[in-house]
């Protein structure tokens, strides 16, 4: 429960946030804190400086572009997503956000925090990979865009490097998405989760089986083809107290079939 000593800053602008992140080696951005503060409580992480993004209004909000692209600010909370009318352009987003943890966490936790912490059991990394989201990263050298499939680099590591901020997640329009998971209990941590998207190309992204979501592109979407494609991905999942590697490999196939089935129906 008891954090190590830390310094705290609450910048009023993104530029100031970037400056603070750049100036302090041990600085970390604090979004909703629903992961970071917990790991600090365990003293597993001990940043020297927390740069609280709370006041950065430019990182909040959801906009629906004329071409149907959704731009979601990184500091948008899960609750904002769930309540948003614009997000109905890509219904799977709200549907999955509603499955994350509980009311309190959804009220404070942010989509940017979710993907930047990249806990392999998180919901959003596989979802954003499957639906072909684009991540906008801002650094001292300016802004760049990274496809979600290239954003996740390792456990707790993403393309948003030191001194950089994820500012925006852009999602193309689409209705044919699915998400299937086996959590511990009704709404606990995921043992395996799979997101599927059948908008144009057929894409699966499997979570909890590697440090980053595993993207599987499907040639065909019948059950046998899905199972074979997942099999061909040669998953090497971790074993832990909740699941053996074999069980995860098995669930990856079963849940892939289910996620695709949901996607086919359209959400």
């Amino acid at each position: 429960m008891l954090l190590r000593e830390v310094e705290y800053a609450r910048p009023a602008s993104v530029q100031e946030a970037l400056r603070l992140l750049g100036e302090h080696d041990g600085a970390r951005a604090l979004a909703g804190g629903q992961t970071l503060i917990n790991v600090m409580k365990a003293r597993v992480a001990s940043p020297d400086v927390l740069v609280d993004l709370h006041d950065l209004q430019e990182l909040r909000g959801i906009e629906l572009g004329a071409d149907g692209t959704l731009d979601l600010g990184a500091m948008t909370t899960y609750a904002d997503v769930i309540d948003s009318a614009e997000v109905r352009a890509r219904p799977i987003l709200a549907e999955v956000c509603a499955q994350i943890a509980d009311v309190q966490v959804r009220n404070r936790g942010t989509i940017g925090g979710n993907v930047c912490s990249n806990d392999p059991t998180n919901h959003l990394p596989p979802l954003l990979v499957a639906i072909g989201a684009t991540m906008t990263i801002l650094g001292a050298d300016g802004e760049r865009s990274v496809p979600a499939a290239d954003f996740f680099l390792g456990v707790y590591m993403t393309a948003a490097g030191p001194g950089e901020l994820l500012t925006k997640i852009s999602v193309p329009p689409g209705k044919h998405d699915g998400f299937a998971s086996v959590p511990i209990g009704r709404d606990g941590t995921c043992i395996v989760n799979v997101a599927a998207s059948l908008n144009g190309e057929a894409r699966l992204a499997i979570g909890c089986v590697d440090a980053v979501p595993v993207l599987v592109k499907l040639e065909a979407t019948d059950e046998e083809a899905i199972r074979q494609a997942v099999h061909a991905a040669n998953l090497d999942p971790p074993a832990d107290v909740h699941a053996s590697a074999d069980y995860r490999r098995h669930l990856a196939q079963v849940l892939s079939v289910r996620a695709v089935a949901q996607a086919r129906k359209g959400s």
């Binding site: 509980d102 511990i184 209990g185 009704r186 709404d187 606990g188 941590t189 107290v241 909740h242």
Partner: peptide, 8 residues
């Protein structure tokens, strides 16, 4: 990691 019953 020790999942006790929640309301759901």
């Amino acid at each position: 990691d020790y999942h006790v019953p929640h309301a759901l």
